[in-house]
Structures are given as C-alpha cells and as structure tokens.
Amino acid sequence: MLEYLLSLAILMTIWSLLTQSYNLSFGLTGLFNLGHIIFYGMGAYTAAILSTQFGSPFLLNLLLGALIAGAFAAVLGLLTLRLSGHYLAIATLGAAMIAIVVATNWISLTNGPMGIRGISQPSILGVEFSSSWAVLALYLVIVIACQWVLWRLFRSPFGRLQRAIAHDEIAAKGLGKDTFRSQVWSLTLSAAFAAVAGGLYAHYRLFLDPSIFALPEIIFLLLMLIVGGQGSFSGAIGGTVIVLLLGEVPRFVGFPDALIGPARNLLYAALLISCMFFAPRGVVWLFTRRRASI
C-alpha cells in the first residue's frame, strides 16, 4: 500500500510540473496548443536514449531534454503561431500525431513499439536514488525549483504581457508589444519545462514506449487545467491533484478490475461537466474568488 501511495505521489509531482508548463502557454498566453505532449515525450526520449546509449548523468539528461524540446518548440512556434484558435490546435495536434509515428517507426533511435528498457535510476554525483522515498524527495526538490521559476514567470511583467495577449492580441500590439515573439517564448519555455517532466518520468518508470505521445494524455492535461483553472498558478497544481486522486477512487470502491478504466472515464466526464456548471474558472477559483487567481 505504501509503495502504491509513493508511486501516486511521484506521478502527481511529475504531472504537476507538466500541467504547470502547459498552463504557461495554454492558460496564460492562450495558445490552444494540442501538441504539448510532444515536448513531454521529447524530454522522456532524450533522457531514455542518453541514459541507455551514452550513460549520461541524470541532471544532464534533464537539461539536454529541456534544450532540445525548447529548440523544437521555438521552430514549431515560428511555423505555427501565425495561426490562431482552431487552426493552431489542428496544426499542433498534427505535430503530435507525427511524433507518435516517428517514435514508433524510427526503430534505430527509439526501438519502436518495443520501447526502451534499462533507463538508469536517478542519481546525482554518484548518489543513487533507488527507493521510492528517495525518488519522491529528489523529484519534489526538482519540481519545486521548476515551479518557483514558473511562478516568477507568472508574476512578472512577462506574465502580465502573456495574460494581455491571451485577452486581446491586437490591443497588445497597439501598445507596441511584439506579441509573436512573446508567444514563441512562451511556447519555448513551456516546452522546456514539459521536457523536464518527461525526463523525470523516464528515469522513474525506467521504460519508455511511444504511448507517451498518445492523444488521451493531452486530453488528460486539458482536463487538469480546466478543473484547476486555466491561467491560475495554484489551479494547475490543484487540478493535477484532484484529477489524479479522482482517478484512483474506483480502485477503492470495489469495482472489478475490468471496469476501473471505464469508471474512471465516467468520473472524469462528471467532473468536467460539474466544473463547467459550478466552477467555470476552475475549482481553485471557488476558494479564492479573485479574478486572475494566481
């Protein structure tokens, strides 16, 4: 039971970072990007490949994953951010589909559907974090540090500009703001943090396959943000915790194993509909009741 709870806590820690990174580009800047999972997967694959093929250290894997995903996001942003709304969503969703195909078929790099095994456990300066307690402690430190950086971004004039762009890009341009550049930066930073979350995931699971890019993952991410509150810093964390905990409920109410998946989906649907009716700005807003809750 303890091991299960620790595993849940570690996943929550990783997903809180992934959701917050998505909150930066989607929640704060208003980019309807459905390809965010690409950056998570890129971070995970970078860590897995570097770890298994070059034996490179854990922190370097995270850093390189962030750099590669950030660079890729910058290029993707330059190509797609002239689009907006549904067009951007379709273009980025298409990019996510391509990522699955690449991860499945570039066998020499990713080992295809067989996946990558033997990813090293996290270690820093020769100290291995092999127990779940140790991994949780390490991941908490890393994720809190990343969340602090994101918090600074949210609270800064940069964050204020992103909120302005999300509300009215034309008005922001009218104030002399280079909205395109700001959006590209938002996507780039958002991708870099998603990649760190992906790297943490790979080094925790120790196995990786193309399912990390699957469409349900992005739906899951959207659900967390909508439940917590799009654009709200605390909402992204709250939404992650609520959705992941709710997903575990069917395990404890005696559902047969075969029904746990469908029951979970029903609960998520009920949660989403409830939020639309009772907390359209997110559950965290119900407690803070402040505009632009941070």
């Binding site: 600074r152 971004l153 800064s156 940069f158 964050g159 703001k177 700001s182 930066w185 930073l189």
Partner: peptide
Amino acid sequence: SHTYDGWWSSF
C-alpha cells in the same frame, strides 16, 4: 515600458 517584456525580466 517595453523594458520588462522579455522572460528574463522575471529574474
């Protein structure tokens, strides 16, 4: 001002 528009201004 446009001085603080970049993300680096956060730090």
